[in-house]
Amino acid sequence: MPRAVPQQNNAPRGEPGDYEEIPIPNKLLAKVGPGYGSDPVALQQAEAVVEKLKVAYELRLEKEVQDLTLSFQKMKNTGEYDLDLLHDVVHEIRGEAGTFGYDLVSNIGKSLCELLSPMGGVSSDDSRAIETHLKAMQTVVAQKVKGAGPKVAKEILEGLAKIVEKSRD
């Protein structure tokens, strides 16, 4: 839609005086300028920081996924599910995984969050759906699959998406 021709706009507009635009001085630019654009050296340094922390992260990720799986097994055994806790842990794993190049773990986590978010109780089918996600996450971490992964990874994500979709029927 063309946005530069005022007379073509017939949409209802607010009453005059309903809003006020407040131009503000650019305090940040005043503090950091003059300058322009990004600094490739600084960006490289920031990327190097992530790289440096990767080894420690990989060990931690393995343990986090292991603990998550054990935690779910315990919930399953007792029948007392803390879905908020599960969701929060998965959400954190998902956020960090992508930063360190584990995009597939991040995407599986996203799928699991989508599965858990609307869940009220946990049926046996729901339980199996959660376990499948956890198993997928464990497998990917154990095999250190980075990035989007091989072709089959896409099919796995599609399969998980179907599970999530069916859980909402």
Partner: peptide, 12 residues
């Protein structure tokens, strides 16, 4: 939410 599909789980 509701039910989840067994066949999709097996596929994954």
């Amino acid at each position: 939410g509701g039910k989840s599909g067994r066949s999709d789980v097996d596929d994954v």
